[in-house]
């Protein structure tokens, strides 16, 4: 298969490491070659957490600036900040629900308007898909399932050779028993939120 490079950015605590793990496990189940790298030393301290996933016969586990084919952002400001990872063909999916950093609260910098963020991203990449993943996660029954909503939206692009069924199976195996049902519901809400847009 062709090499496909995916970058996921999130704020510590949003659960992107679990979603990349689920995606990786799903790829393994389908025998899709996958490698992943993540920086999580400060994950629990509110910093930015980034995962890189490379699908296909590449050996590198990281992705250089401008080389993401797919870019999934859990938070709109972080989508904008990491835009250097994208190019004019990148498909970008971002959550529109914001988590303003503390620095903005104490007046060190201004959180940009969400419409401005969307326009800026749109003007530089191949396609921008937006959804309010927090609202959908609440609808699924757990606000913490934002990661699963976004995972659903990601696979719905069909850029990755990963099936919804394999994601469901990986969720059943990887996530806590009590959350499996909500998580699968969240994936499906994420999928239907973007189906048709893509």
């Amino acid at each position: 298969m062709d090499i496909t490079r995916l970058i996921i950015v999130a704020v510590g605590g949003q659960g992107n490491l679990l979603s990349s793990k689920v995606l990786g496990e799903a790829a393994c189940r389908l025998d899709v070659p996958v490698r992943m790298s993540e920086i999580h030393g400060m994950a629990q301290r509110g910093g930015v957490v980034e995962s890189a996933m490379v699908f296909g016969e590449a050996q590198s586990t990281i992705i250089s600036d401008g080389e993401a084919d797919l870019f999934l952002a859990f938070e709109p400001l972080e989508a904008l900040r990491a835009l250097n990872r994208c190019n004019s063909k990148t498909i970008v999916i971002t959550n529109t629900s914001s988590l303003p950093p503390f620095t903005a609260a104490i007046g060190k910098g201004t959180y940009p308007d969400i419409e401005t963020i969307k326009e800026l991203i749109q003007s530089k990449v191949g396609q921008l898909i937006t959804l309010d993943a927090n609202a959908l996660a609440r609808e699924a029954g757990n606000e913490l399932s934002v990661n699963m909503v976004l995972l659903g939206a990601l696979i719905e692009t069909n850029v990755l050779p990963i099936t919804a069924q394999s994601i469901h199976d990986a969720i059943s195996e990887t996530t806590k028993k009590g959350f499996v049902e909500t998580n699968i519901r969240a994936v499906e809400l994420g999928r239907s939120a973007v189906s048709g847009i893509i």
Binding site: N84, N87, S88, P101, T103, G109, P112, L120
Partner: peptide
Amino acid sequence: LPDLSDIPELPQRPPT
């Protein structure tokens, strides 16, 4: 690489 010159200065998100 994309031209990012029109991106405003963004509030930092240091670990805390």
